[in-house]
Design a protein around this nucleic acid. Sequence first.
DNA 1: GATTTATGTAAGTAGTGATTACATAATCTG
DNA 2: CAGATTATGTAATCACTACTTACATAAATC
Lengths: 204, 204
Amino acid sequence: MTTQRKTYHHGSLRQALIDAALAIAREDGVDQVTVREAGKRAGVSSGAPFRHFPTKTALMTAVAEEAMRRFRARISVELDKAERLDPLSRFRALGIAYLRWVIDNPTHFEIISMRRAIDFDASETLVGLNEEIRNLMVRMLEDARAAGQLRKADIEGVPLQARALVYGLARMWIDGQFAQWGGAEKAESLMQQSLDDFLALLAK
Amino acid sequence: MTTQRKTYHHGSLRQALIDAALAIAREDGVDQVTVREAGKRAGVSSGAPFRHFPTKTALMTAVAEEAMRRFRARISVELDKAERLDPLSRFRALGIAYLRWVIDNPTHFEIISMRRAIDFDASETLVGLNEEIRNLMVRMLEDARAAGQLRKADIEGVPLQARALVYGLARMWIDGQFAQWGGAEKAESLMQQSLDDFLALLAK
DNA sequence: GATTTATGTAAGTAGTGATTACATAATCTG
DNA sequence: CAGATTATGTAATCACTACTTACATAAATC
């Protein structure tokens, strides 16, 4: 990286730092992200980043926001593809899009869910997008029930159950609990199977 | 803490450091644990811990082992209480014991599942105890099937599903995703409900 | 009782987040 | 358009961290 700079001022240092942090996280892991290294990659001194982010937490929060936007965008794309399907199948598509993004971007998902290392609750973006994804999940389940796809009429606890299942699979991947069962492809098929099994339990 | 010491040698510094680290984690959070502070609480200099643990990771691994032993012990106690119940109820007891321990010891569970910050795979204790808990889960599900308690005969994917659900609920608690729904009691009842809903889907 | 070994101390290294005083470029204003 | 103002960079520094090294002291062993 280490972008060469002809002017004294960078021009778009803020975004460059976010991109650098995302790249470091992807290449070397989340805990290898340092303010200095992000600055270095952007071609700037070690103190410069602090003009744009008062603390490392503020930088990481902005990084999480960027990651969350990409996560949300990916889900939208996949849901659009599934637009003509029945509610339960769309719910499945959402779950699979979620899990695939996590497999493809483990460190970025890690940053999003690192709620103690970022100011999650203070970020409208993070809270809002998170809420959007949750709402999508709930709405699809309600649609599935309305369409008579479910075994039981009471879906009171199902959304939490579904979230816990997907989040659990995602975190198990992040935390290296699928390592013994092979690579990303194997993990993906296991996750997909698990999701399908769950849907089979719910469905008529 | 800052144990006073009359002899030059501590006598049991290794264990004192592990206990100190657990206490710091519980009181101030996992990332507040430093080798220096653990040494300080044990009443020794900042370099002394390195005689017992070559790296911070080694200390944290030992801490995780201690936490895992306590976790395992708690599960044993609760399972003993449920000894006379049917398999599915014992499975439920295991899940609830798991989740209650996490609620009572969030930072300790966090350390156990921090697989990048500890040498999980290099620790026979961690790998072994983890495997024991997983085997308990699987065995009880098989017993439940054998006892004709389940709707479907095929339980192929159920253990993973169950693990993901419980692990997901646990991590959601750790990651602060239950915060908006009130304190530990509320979270516990939500988790319990979620587990019961899942069992209801499985059961005949 | 002398020697060896285990375990502590003290001081120092390099890397981190963060702050400060200062320098330079972009922008605003008359 | 020129001078003042403001935004944004640099360099030096601080406190803290994991970790190392040289040395001191107690315990264990012969």
